[in-house]
Each structure stands twice: as C-alpha cells, then as structure tokens.
Amino acid sequence: MKPSFSVLLIGLALTLAACNTIKGIGQDVQSAGGAIERAAR
C-alpha cells in the first residue's frame, strides 16, 4: 500500500506544477494581448 501512496503523491505534485505553469503562460499571453491592444489604439 505504501508504494502506491507514494506514486499518488508524486502524480499530484506533478499535476499541481503543470497547472501553475499553464496559468503563468496564460497570464503572459493575456498581458501581451493587452499591450498589443493598447498599442493599436
């Protein structure tokens, strides 16, 4: 039972790390889009 719990924890940690990375990329793209929009005005 202990090895499967370790695998579960590692999988959860990787999932959370991926979510933070995707969130950061989304924020970068959003800020770049805002800058382009301001420049177009």
Rank of each mutant, 00 (worst) to 15 (best):
M1D: 03
M1E: 04
M1S: 01
K2V: 05
K2S: 01
K2E: 05
P3F: 00
P3K: 00
P3Y: 00
S4C: 03
S4W: 05
F5H: 15
S6Y: 09
S6G: 12
V7Y: 07
L8T: 10
L8N: 07
L8I: 00
L9W: 07
L9D: 08
L9F: 11
I10D: 02
I10E: 09
I10S: 04
G11F: 00
G11C: 02
G11Q: 05
A13M: 02
A13D: 14
A13H: 03
A13G: 07
L14C: 13
L14S: 15
T15I: 00
T15Q: 04
T15F: 04
T15L: 10
T15G: 03
L16Q: 09
L16N: 06
A17D: 10
A17R: 14
A17S: 15
A17H: 13
A18P: 06
N20G: 10
N20L: 13
N20H: 09
N20T: 08
T21C: 08
T21N: 12
T21A: 04
I22G: 08
I22P: 01
I22V: 12
K23P: 01
K23Q: 09
K23L: 07
G24C: 04
G24V: 03
G24H: 10
G24M: 09
I25L: 04
I25N: 00
I25F: 00
G26I: 11
G26D: 14
Q27L: 08
Q27C: 02
Q27D: 06
Q27F: 10
Q27H: 08
D28P: 04
D28T: 14
V29R: 14
V29I: 10
V29C: 06
Q30T: 05
Q30L: 08
Q30D: 07
Q30F: 01
S31K: 02
S31I: 03
S31V: 06
S31R: 00
A32P: 13
A32N: 12
A32F: 06
G33E: 02
G33N: 11
G33Q: 11
G33C: 08
G33W: 10
G34E: 06
G34N: 10
G34C: 07
A35R: 03
A35P: 11
A35K: 07
A35D: 02
A35Y: 01
A35Q: 06
I36K: 13
I36R: 05
I36F: 13
E37I: 14
E37R: 15
E37A: 15
E37Y: 15
R38Q: 09
R38P: 08
R38G: 09
R38W: 05
A39R: 12
A39G: 15
A40F: 14
A40W: 08
R41H: 11
R41A: 15
R41C: 10
